[in-house]
Design a protein around this nucleic acid. Structure first.
Lengths: 355, 355
DNA sequence: TCTCCTATTGCAATCGATTGCAACAAGCCT
DNA sequence: AGGCTTGTTGCAATCGATTGCAATAGGAGA
């Protein structure tokens, strides 16, 4: 704005070198360059520690920068270099719109992701997305703000994810893998996990399993499929599937309603996640049922919180820390142009007290 | 790069209009401008819906943009407009370096903050900072990437925060407020909260209180002070203060060690946070102690998880949702140049089953 | 018919940093 | 002494979008 007037009617040539008011710290490379009596290019190189500038000059400029509390404008830097140093961590809430960021599974994996990313010098941009617009992922990916995207869960947005993954490489999702799928995933074998859970219940004498959790997202759908497979293999009836929304305030009532209605028809519960299992424990305690003697309950995830419940939660373990590391590794590989494949981890039964 | 060669030896004037290869979507305003046969300025205005462009042209350009999946480069836009649309949410871990992002209190407030910010069209940049460098906050604030900063907790970094707040307005912190403090805070009256907790224990017959939680950060220090005040007012001995680190893997052992050593000298526990209280419940159950009959336990925060414990947690409620909204409101006011003061909310006793 | 106004559009500066290339000096070699 | 290398530095284009101002065309009014 000021520059519009500056230099009006002056002789052509270098712009007038208005001395920087000493009370205001240097904000731009140009300020610093003026102060040091060199060009912005030299300042840029000096601050980057380039060996192209004379060591003396370099030190002088660095000292000057420190004295003036100078920090380069990342916006400009990133525009120029076309690298942002920012990774988007995105939670799509296609179904489950009311789910909150504070879902413990999500926060656990987010914590691990954030740790791994910051250790590598990347910033984390967090987005909790309700995909009402068709192109929600395109908007994120094409805004030019991110070097890569990590998706936590696939929700019911497989198509959108596939569409983007076809042309956008640095994208890794936590979730399940279906044959022919393009986008890179990290997750556990959910079918196997469901089977393990159900087999454990069956070995404990359960004959009529209920699966708690809604099955629109692929992960829980597969877990339920595994539960069904195990039941079928044991010659048991098809397990009952009961929807449970993840918004924590509704979950307790929903489960309570389910149980009062169906409790006479079931004798064991496989929960779609540890949070569902914990709430179930709570509801059963309220209804005067003993766990596991009256009704065994098994979870899925192995969140740290499962150690805090009474009784301690029997569950199917997903190695979330390893998964997070794997996601970040794969993302970096893809950013570097390499081709990183998916990781499907085996689930693992953790027997504690609830089943 | 290409442009270095382009136009060499050509007549001056408009740059050669190499037709855009139709297989590649339009990536820049210039691409689109070429396609539409107008200037980039017109495209920019058309996409912004400016009334300065002919309605027909505007529609044509918008259709073209949609057809080519065009999305403006946010980096460039933000550099030019000097607005980033990004708010930093920063967790300083000065003490408690091992604390994880997955701390439930942190995640709960983060969830509310993220909701409020995204509703207002802002993005969230998440930073978990271990303040080893003196100027950790300056680096964040001066990078030019953020329109404002929300701090979750003050850790032991009061000086650094004050220093920056003196010159950087759009900064709001969750935490406690001390007299003469410059930076804007939102939080609860921790001294009062501590007092309420202790008074409740004392009314239940407790005479020798232990406070679990380390007191280097101002919030817990004040809560402990409140506990001490209540004890003094009742003529009881000074409550025992026992350090407990927040890293969840260590907490259980630490508390167990504390309790085995001091359990004979105490008859009631005020925990510095709900997480500490929940772990204490777990440890007491393992040691065969009944809560509240043998040892009453009271928490602080009123996290949703407190409803899941057995017994349900008696606690001191902080209205985290309201606090998060207040933080965001104040931040926006400050971004707009107004002067928003602090908010100190009254804590509230929530009596459930653990005390 | 001429002037003036208005609705559109283009031009070019700007945000702030990076970087290829050119320019220049000093020192070395033959 | 002239040519060449080496070490430093400056110049200016560039990233991609925004926006004040100038320019143009067309229509209205006198």
């Amino acid at each position: 704005m000021l520059a519009h007037c500056r230099g009006k009617g002056q002789t052509p040539g270098p712009v007038s070198q208005d001395p920087l008011p000493s009370d205001r710290p240097a904000r731009t490379l140009a300020d610093l360059a003026r102060l040091a009596g060199v060009s912005t290019g030299t300042v840029s190189r000096a601050l980057a520690g380039s060996s192209l500038v004379n060591p003396e000059t370099r030190q002088r400029i660095q000292a000057l920068a420190a004295a003036h509390d100078f920090r380069v404008n990342q916006m400009a830097r990133r525009l120029r270099t076309q690298k942002t140093g920012v990774i988007g961590v995105v939670v799509p809430l296609g179904h489950e719109r009311r789910q909150h960021l504070s879902d413990p599974f999500f926060m656990t994996i987010l914590g691990h992701l954030a740790d791994a990313l910051t250790e590598n010098g990347y910033d984390v941009m967090l987005s909790r997305i309700i995909p009402d617009a068709e192109d929600w992922l395109e908007r994120i990916v094409d805004a030019g703000m991110l070097d890569g995207v990590l998706l936590i869960g696939q929700s019911d947005q497989m198509e959108a994810i596939e569409r983007v993954a076809r042309r956008y490489r640095p994208l890794v999702a936590w979730g399940s893998r279906v044959p022919g799928q393009i986008h890179c995933t990290v997750g556990t074998e959910n079918v196997a996990g469901g089977r393990i859970a159900a087999e454990h219940l069956i070995a404990r004498g359960v004959r009529r399993i209920a699966f708690l959790g809604e099955i629109r997202a692929p992960e829980l759908r597969e877990r339920y499929a595994g539960v069904c497979a195990a039941a079928a293999a044991a010659g048991l009836p098809v397990p009952l599937q009961l929807d449970t929304h993840l918004a924590s305030d509704m979950m307790e009532q929903e489960i309570a309603a389910h149980l009062t209605r169906h409790l006479d028809r079931i004798d064991g519960i496989a929960a779609g996640s540890d949070m569902i299992a914990m709430t179930t424990l709570r509801v059963l305690a309220d209804q005067g049922m003993a766990v596991p003697s009256d009704v065994p309950v098994i979870g899925y995830d192995d969140l740290p919180l499962g150690l805090q419940t009474v009784p301690r939660l029997t569950t199917v373990r997903q190695d979330i820390a390893r998964g997070a590391r794997a996601m970040v590794e794969r993302l970096f590989a893809r950013i570097a142009g390499q081709d990183a494949g998916p990781l499907v981890m085996p689930p693992e039964l953790v027997v504690r007290d609830s089943a």
